[in-house]
């Protein structure tokens, strides 16, 4: 059988693959790194077991079996007592080895779980509440000082080297918060708050995606975690805490009027304006974000125009209302929203 080639193939794909932004095996922080180490120890140990079992299996097909006489099985259907006792020793030994290996794996697994749990108890943590919605993420930076509490959506910035506590909640159905480069999953369950600690030890953009089936657009519920050095994070935070910039060009002033005079305001908030809806992503700094519609598409003017005109074709079934924006209003509206850096 050609299975010997499979581990080699698997390895080359695992190491050489181009997509690393949402991979459990490309850790960007200590939690994911510990799981990655545990994975490879499991992989090698279980891989060796697989090869041994397959070797034995293949050997049963050949005539050559160690120290076995060819017995007249067609008549008696029984192996000789010597063969039986010898085989019994081997099978017993294999069972004992299996138990020992499993014991080692349990200890390694529980030890890793404990080590990951210990990573949470550090000083100076940042607390972020992530709320799942059909089909987007609300991100709220918790701060004792209400003026420092920030609400945004679908994109989370965190400082490198600082532990972050994720408090998970849900507005509607069960979702699951998962940024594989940083940590495993944690479900977001309505009526409960779940808890997970993440930390990035190198700057980068890590993609995450909802991992619990949550309905029609489960496939289009992604978020970005942007890990930045402390000073850049602070600058980002300061900027995000500001209300939205007032429109400065004629085009964007018109765009703001279009936004405020339409049904947009019932669901979306833009701080600094009269738009105060709470049912949909906060758009105060929409222009600074990477994606549209929970990162279904990149945030470009073209995509945004398409999204506003017909949200149902890009992400069928999503809860954004289709609003009749006439063609002369569309361009100003897009310009305005993209100006909200």
């Amino acid at each position: 059988m050609k299975r010997a080639a499979v581990p080699a193939f698997a390895l080359s794909v695992l190491y050489g693959c181009a997509w690393h932004q949402q991979s459990a095996l490309n850790p960007g922080g200590p939690q994911a790194a510990k799981i990655d180490t545990l994975w490879w120890s499991f992989f090698w140990l279980l891989g060796v077991i697989f090869i041994i079992v397959m070797t034995v299996l293949l050997l049963t097909l050949t005539g050559r079996r160690a120290n076995m006489e060819r017995e007249a099985l067609e008549v008696t259907h029984k192996a000789s007592p010597q063969t039986e006792s010898q085989t019994r020793r081997i099978v017993t030994g294999a069972t004992i080895i299996t138990i020992l290996i499993l014991f080692v794996l349990i200890v390694a697994s529980v030890g890793t779980g404990k080590a990951i749990a210990d990573l949470g108890f550090k000083k100076n943590p940042l607390t972020i509440q992530v709320t799942g919605n059909q089909w987007w993420w609300e991100i709220q930076y918790i701060n004792g000082d209400a003026s420092q509490t920030l609400v945004t959506a679908n994109e989370m910035h965190i400082p490198v080297g600082r532990p972050v506590q994720i408090l998970g909640q849900s507005q509607d159905v069960i979702h699951s918060f998962w940024v594989p480069n940083l940590h495993g999953k944690r479900d977001l369950i309505p009526s409960r708050t779940t808890n997970e600690w993440i930390e990035a030890d190198q700057p980068g953009a890590y993609r995450g995606q909802c991992a619990e089936f949550c309905g029609l657009q489960h496939a289009h519920m992604a978020l970005w975690v942007i890990a930045e050095p402390e000073d850049r994070f602070d600058a980002w935070m300061r900027a995000q805490l500001q209300p939205a910039a007032s429109p400065s060009t004629q085009e964007t002033i018109r765009g703001q009027q279009v936004f405020l005079n339409n049904a947009c305001v019932f669901c979306h908030q833009i701080r600094g304006t009269t738009a105060g809806g709470q049912n949909a992503p906060d758009l105060t700094h929409f222009g600074s974000r990477r994606g549209i519609a929970a990162n279904t598409v990149p945030n470009t003017k073209g995509n945004l125009a398409g999204w506003i005109v017909d949200p149902q074709s890009m992400k069928p079934g999503n809860h954004m209302a289709t609003i009749a924006v006439n063609s002369t209003d569309l361009q100003p509206l897009v310009d305005y929203l993209e100006s909200l850096k």
Binding site: I35, H183, A211
Partner: peptide, 29 residues
């Protein structure tokens, strides 16, 4: 024989899923 090959792979990945930290990563994938 096909069963033994495939089932052993499935059993070994089952051991992976039994480990809580590994399951956090591979669960629902």
């Amino acid at each position: 024989y096909g069963f033994l090959v495939i089932f052993v792979v499935g059993g070994l990945t089952g051991v992976v899923l039994a480990s809580v930290p590994l399951d956090w990563q591979v669960h629902d994938t």
